[in-house]
Amino acid sequence: MTNHEVRKMEDGFALSRQFAKQQYQSALVMVISGVLAFFVTSVITPGASSLGLAIAAATGFSVGVWCQPNVYRRQNGSLTLAIALIAFMWAVPVIVMLTSFSG
């Protein structure tokens, strides 16, 4: 092996380690924000236990897209599908809260 090939291989390993570190950090932030949202929701609305799970899922996914948007991009570079999914995930708890207040 030449020095150039060894350098390219070391650069590849460094990029791989950096990517794995970013994925780990993003997953950790998603889980922490979801758990935090679940506990905050449980304290604010103790009667609606399923509402906490819906808000935790929406929070975790929103943070995940915010942390690493390139992972959620489609092949044409659009984030439309991820944004639509985030909007739907946040619409569910909002609808539940509105229906519980009205009835």
Results as ranks from 00 to 15, higher is better:
residue 11 D to E: 14
residue 13 F to A: 09
residue 10 E to P: 00
residue 89 M to P: 02
residue 53 L to Y: 13
residue 14 A to N: 12
residue 15 L to I: 05
residue 58 A to H: 00
residue 37 A to N: 03
residue 81 L to Q: 11
residue 41 T to N: 01
residue 34 G to D: 03
residue 56 A to G: 12
residue 23 Q to M: 12
residue 14 A to D: 12
residue 53 L to N: 12
residue 71 V to F: 14
residue 64 G to R: 02
residue 49 S to D: 10
residue 99 T to P: 02
residue 41 T to G: 01
residue 43 V to C: 05
residue 96 V to Y: 04
residue 23 Q to D: 10
residue 9 M to N: 12
residue 54 A to Q: 13
residue 78 S to L: 08
residue 94 V to S: 10
residue 36 L to K: 03
residue 87 A to Q: 07
residue 43 V to P: 00
residue 13 F to C: 05
residue 25 Q to Y: 07
residue 36 L to T: 15
residue 39 F to V: 15
residue 4 H to Q: 13
residue 57 A to I: 14
residue 98 L to K: 10
residue 94 V to L: 14
residue 11 D to I: 07
residue 73 R to L: 15
residue 101 F to M: 12
residue 8 K to T: 05
residue 71 V to I: 15
residue 43 V to L: 15
residue 72 Y to P: 02
residue 65 V to E: 01
residue 72 Y to V: 07
residue 5 E to D: 14
residue 49 S to W: 12
residue 91 A to N: 04
residue 98 L to G: 03
residue 60 G to M: 06
residue 61 F to Y: 15
residue 75 Q to D: 15
residue 57 A to C: 15
residue 47 G to Y: 09
residue 23 Q to E: 11
residue 34 G to S: 11
residue 11 D to V: 01
residue 59 T to G: 06
residue 40 V to L: 15
residue 5 E to K: 08
residue 65 V to K: 04
residue 4 H to F: 06
residue 66 W to Q: 13
residue 73 R to Y: 03
residue 60 G to R: 02
residue 37 A to C: 09
residue 55 I to M: 08
residue 78 S to G: 12
residue 78 S to P: 03
residue 32 I to W: 05
residue 45 T to Q: 09
residue 66 W to V: 14
residue 22 Q to P: 00
residue 57 A to K: 02
residue 94 V to K: 04
residue 61 F to E: 06
residue 90 W to Y: 12
residue 17 R to P: 00
residue 48 A to I: 08
residue 61 F to C: 07
residue 28 L to M: 10
residue 9 M to S: 14
residue 1 M to G: 13
residue 42 S to G: 13
residue 37 A to P: 02
residue 78 S to W: 06
residue 91 A to E: 02
residue 69 P to G: 05
residue 57 A to T: 11
residue 87 A to N: 09
residue 71 V to Y: 14
residue 29 V to W: 06
residue 70 N to T: 12
residue 49 S to C: 01
residue 26 S to A: 14
residue 35 V to F: 06
residue 73 R to N: 03
residue 33 S to R: 02
residue 71 V to C: 05
residue 71 V to N: 13
residue 11 D to W: 00
residue 16 S to Y: 01
residue 8 K to P: 00
residue 42 S to R: 15
residue 38 F to G: 00
residue 43 V to F: 15
residue 80 T to N: 07
residue 45 T to V: 15
residue 3 N to F: 07
residue 34 G to T: 06
residue 2 T to R: 00
residue 97 M to L: 14
residue 101 F to C: 00
residue 25 Q to G: 07
residue 69 P to W: 02
residue 90 W to I: 08
residue 46 P to N: 07
residue 98 L to N: 07
residue 103 G to P: 04
residue 78 S to M: 06
residue 73 R to D: 03
residue 9 M to G: 03
residue 90 W to M: 08
residue 1 M to D: 09
residue 53 L to D: 08
residue 11 D to R: 12
residue 98 L to T: 13
residue 39 F to Q: 13
residue 41 T to P: 01
residue 47 G to W: 01
residue 32 I to A: 15
residue 21 K to N: 11
residue 79 L to D: 01
residue 85 L to P: 01
residue 67 C to K: 09
residue 51 L to A: 08
residue 19 F to T: 12
residue 96 V to D: 03
residue 88 F to E: 08
residue 4 H to V: 10
residue 77 G to K: 06
residue 89 M to V: 06
residue 11 D to G: 11
residue 30 M to R: 08
residue 28 L to Q: 12
residue 69 P to V: 09
residue 24 Y to S: 10
residue 81 L to P: 00
residue 67 C to T: 13
residue 5 E to V: 09
residue 23 Q to H: 04
residue 17 R to L: 10
residue 37 A to W: 00
residue 98 L to S: 10
